[in-house]
């Protein structure tokens, strides 16, 4: 099942892309598993995800913790802590 991955703010700059469609390999269960898999795709991902604890995630446009299950998700977003207002 193809999943859209989106990146915002400096994560978009470090990965060099705002979004991409990926086929996640079977066996990835949580958002954290996706992070580990992405980190193996290239140095730009390693850099974007380098700081543990800083990366926030959303599944289908709802905030989730990295331990959340990705089952059924169509869109996964990664971003730094928000700074609006």
């Amino acid at each position: 099942m193809p999943v859209k991955i989106r990146y915002f703010a400096w994560m978009r700059e470090k990965t060099g892309k705002a979004e991409e469609i990926v086929d996640l390999p079977a066996g990835l269960v949580t958002v954290a598993d996706v992070v580990e898999w992405l980190k193996g795709r290239g140095p730009e991902y390693g850099e974007a995800f380098a700081k543990p604890g800083v990366v926030r995630a959303a599944l289908d446009q709802t905030h989730v913790k990295l331990e959340a299950s990705i089952a059924g998700a169509r869109e996964i977003a990664f971003f730094p802590p928000v700074t609006g207002g």
């Binding site: 915002f8 703010a9 400096w10 959303a58 905030h63 977003a77 971003f79 730094p80 802590p81 928000v82 700074t83 609006g84 207002g85």
Partner: peptide, 23 residues
């Protein structure tokens, strides 16, 4: 709103620098 709404600010310095605002 400040801790949940997905907005990100990047400051543009008078000297031409750019910096993402930290939470």
């Amino acid at each position: 709103l400040k801790t949940r709404a997905p907005f990100w600010k990047k400051e543009l310095g008078a000297d031409g620098s750019e910096q993402w605002v930290e939470a």
